[in-house]
Each structure stands twice: as C-alpha cells, then as structure tokens.
Design a protein around this nucleic acid. Structure first.
Lengths: 180, 180
DNA sequence: ATATTAAAATAACAAGTGTTACAAAACGGA
DNA sequence: TCCGTTTTGTAACACTTGTTATTTTAATAT
C-alpha cells in the first residue's frame, strides 16, 4: 500500500536523548536532531506533536536513566543513605548535563524526592535501614544527609568538587556518623 | 559641539542587571534591554562592544551585589560558618536567578570559593573563628559545612527546600555542632 | 508494471537573535 | 540662526529557531 517508515520515533528519541546527555537539554533543536539522525525535520514532527513533546519525552527518559543508574550502582556501604549518596554524586560527576536537567531544572518538573525515590522506593528503603540501625528520627537524618549529598553533587556538576570516590565515601560515612 | 548623551552605559547596565535578576541571564537580549531602557538598540552598542561584554559586566555586578548582600546580612551566630550559611541560603531563596548565575553556572566563571571569599576574605575570617573556638581542623570543617550549605541553597533555588529562616538557623547550628 | 499512498525531503514562513549601515535629530559653539 | 558633531532611531542583513505547505520518493497491492 504505502511507503515503509525508515525513521522511527524511537530513533529520534535516542538521538535527542544522546544530544541532551552530551550537550545539554538546550541543544535539542529540530534541525540538530535531524542532522544527527541523518534526516530532515519532517520525521520528527510526524512522531512528535512539537519540540516540547520531544523534550518532555527526553526528560522522562533521563528519569528512567537515572533510576537504572542507581539500581545498578554498587551498594557496599552499611550506613543508611550512603549508597544512595555515592550513586548521586557519581551521577552528577559523570552525567553533568542529565544531572542539571533532572535536579537543577530551570522550570520545575518532578521534585527531587519524586525522582530519587522512584518506583523502587529507594529512599523509603534507606529510611527503614536507618530505623533498623536504631536511628530515632530517620526523617531528620534523611533531610540532613540529603542536603549534604545534594550539595556535593551540585558542586561536582559545576566542577567545584574534587574529591575522589574513596574520599567521598569516607566523608559520607563520617558525616552520617556525625548526624547520628 | 555635539549632541548630549541621554542613555548612559550605567543606565543600560542597570536595566540589564535588573532583567537578569528578575528573569535570568538568558533574558538579556539587545531588543529586550532596549525596550526596558526606552531606547533603540544603538545606545547599547555604543557603550558595549557586543552583548557578551554587557553580559560579562552584568555578571561582575552580580558578584558585587552578592558580596554587598553578605556584608549587610545580620551575623548574630557564634558558631563558625553559620552566618555565612544563613546569608547564602537566604540569597538563594530571595535572588534565585542571581544565585543560579553565580553559583550554578553553565559555563564556569569564577569559582564558588572566589566569589564567596571576595575581597573581605569572609571565609578566612570564619576559619579563624573556628580555630579560636578550638576546632582542630578548620579546613575540614569548612568543607563539610560548606557542602551542606550549598546543598540547602541549591534546593532553595529550585524550590525543593521549605524550611523557614528559624528552622534553617537551628539546623545549621545543629549540623555545625555535629561536625565538631 | 502501475497505481496508490504514506513517508521523507525541500522549501518556505514567521519570529527572534546579534550586529551594522544609514538616516534623523539634537546639542553647543559660531 | 545655522553648522558641525555626536547620539539616537530606523531599517536592514545574516542567522537560528519552530512549524507547516508542498513536492518528491518509495513500498506494496493490484
């Protein structure tokens, strides 16, 4: 009957996500995406209503990417929140643009907590762990630890943080200890 | 001899700074600045080589603005770094766009430390204070406190922080205590 | 093979950007 | 008043953006 599609929605989303990852969300423009997908701008607008819709899908994909990153991150530490913290800081260091998009957005999307906790309820699991270890007020501990971790990660994103992973680990455990 | 100038470099800088303060650095465009200054784009390019130069001057002005903000901020707390922290978090809350420009920049300009310490050497003064109060390693204390404060401020900027000033004060003193 | 028909390419429009060429205006000395 | 000089305004250029109209291309049912 008709011609077969050669540029799928998936391909466009892949390209746009990779661009956001490398060059930041602002680099997602119709012509740039088209160029990297080796096509004209038409296939984009066949698959997406407009560029906002594509950008929103890239954002959702970044959320999933972070959650997968966290799930696969090694979790050797016993102190509560420290594994989460290590993963968060490493993500900020390795995926600066995605980190900015998700956690320091110019226009508010999902809250930090919402992304962080995700579907596997990571935060709740850590709070349970704290309670099991005899922490009287895990909520307060979480807040303080989390503020600390977010600070380290934001510095990592902008290049104002130069501790190694090992040093970060030591510091995190240290800080967690202090807060208990 | 010649016509008198009616739109000064100062006026343009004032307008551009106010725009950056209210709407963010990205809102500084030739036509927008001109509109808010009630003139054409010509006076801008008479006073500034190009828009980059204007933007750079706005940035410098934001640095000075922050330093004045800090200098004038009340400093009732005895614990080291806490006054600095209160001012920093309040600045992030009240001047979200300026905070972003200065402390979470997309392209690196001055380092956090450089802006923070400024000409009056605020950080050094706090480190002295810590030493006087018997802190063995003020450098380490500063780093940890500062990461914490930066985290709170970044959350305040994005709206992910909802503690009052009083609660912040209590928490900061609390955290400082923990770290000592 | 050819006709059908969706997909993709081309090309255009409108809006917004920095920047510059040129024309109009206004100030101050003669 | 009028001339010269400088400032300002107007208008344009070149470019980038999103988006859409139109043409071309190619797969497949007949």
């Amino acid at each position: 009957m008709a011609r077969k599609e050669s540029i799928t929605k998936q391909m466009i989303l892949d390209v746009a996500f990779e661009m956001a990852r490398e060059e930041g969300a602002r680099s997602i423009t119709a012509r740039h995406v088209a160029e990297r997908a080796n096509c004209s701008t038409q296939p984009i607008f066949r698959s997406f209503l407009n560029m906002d819709e594509l950008t929103a899908d890239v954002y959702d994909r970044a959320v999933a990417f972070f959650q997968a990153y966290y799930d696969e991150f090694p979790k050797p530490l016993k102190a509560p929140f420290c594994n989460l913290g290590m993963a968060y800081v490493a993500f900020a260091r390795e995926e600066k643009e995605l980190f900015r998009m998700l956690f320091v957005p110019e226009k508010p999307r999902k809250s930090l907590y919402e992304i962080l906790n995700g579907e596997s309820e990571n935060v709740k699991a850590e709070i349970m762990k704290a309670r099991e270890q005899g922490c009287a007020d895990p909520g307060a501990l979480f807040m303080k630890i989390w503020i600390f971790i977010h600070g380290a990660a934001c510095m990592a994103m902008t290049g104002d943080y130069d501790l190694s992973d090992d040093e970060t680990k030591t510091m995190l455990e240290n800080v967690c200890e202090s807060f208990l």
